[in-house]
């Protein structure tokens, strides 16, 4: 059974331990600017929201890549950037409708969450349980899946965000077909 990152914004305090863990794992230094998970602070509302790649089925980034530098990790379901193949054309950064593939000028490559190969450091570092790595059959999964599929949608249809959704589960397993 594939596992997924489960993000529960209501538990987040905005401490950025996840961003530090992510950047440490991926760059060897504590560097939130290079984290692949990002906590958004809604100052005026007093809310915090950790956010990263959903490892969506649609894999916009993967399909848009002109040089096959983004590949499906069969073990985890993540879409991984092969940085030695990536030429830095950035097409995936505009193709991802979730805004979770970013270009890094230093390396000239794009980066995105790869679930740390199945042992995500953000989840291990989160002190409040706002980020957990759980079996993808969590009850929240279908709702998250609904979100992943809302972009793109039938032309003319309006977004109808689920109200008061309690949890958000990323990384829906491959269902086969398209």
């Amino acid at each position: 059974m594939l596992k997924a990152l489960k993000l529960e914004p209501e538990k987040c305090t905005g401490c950025l331990q996840c961003e530090m863990a992510c950047s440490f794992e991926n760059t060897g230094a504590f560097n939130p600017a290079k984290s692949r998970i990002k906590v958004f602070t809604f100052h005026d509302e007093g809310r915090f929201a950790p956010y990263t790649c959903t490892q969506c089925d649609e894999a916009w980034c993967m399909h848009a890549c002109p040089v096959e530098a983004i590949v499906l990790n069969m073990a985890t379901g993540s879409k991984d950037v092969l940085s030695d193949v990536c030429v830095g054309c950035k097409v995936c950064t505009i193709a991802c409708p979730f805004g979770t593939v970013n270009y890094e000028a230093d390396s000239g490559k794009v980066v995105k969450c790869d679930l740390c190969g199945g042992d995500p450091w953000c989840a291990k570092a989160c002190p409040t349980g706002a980020i957990t790595y759980v079996a993808a059959d969590d009850t929240g999964m279908e709702r998250m899946r609904a979100w992943a599929q809302q972009a793109p949608r039938e032309a003319g249809a309006h977004a109808n965000p689920p109200k008061a959704k309690e949890v958000q589960v990323f990384n829906v397993p491959q269902q086969g077909g398209l």
Binding site: T13, G14, C15, L16, Q17, M20, G46, F48, P127
Partner: peptide, 19 residues
């Protein structure tokens, strides 16, 4: 109190966010 909020790297999160 709207929520508690943390400073950078803080796992205590004593900060008060209020309206």
């Amino acid at each position: 109190l709207s929520t508690n909020g943390a400073c950078f790297g803080c796992t205590i999160a004593c900060g008060r966010i209020s309206t």
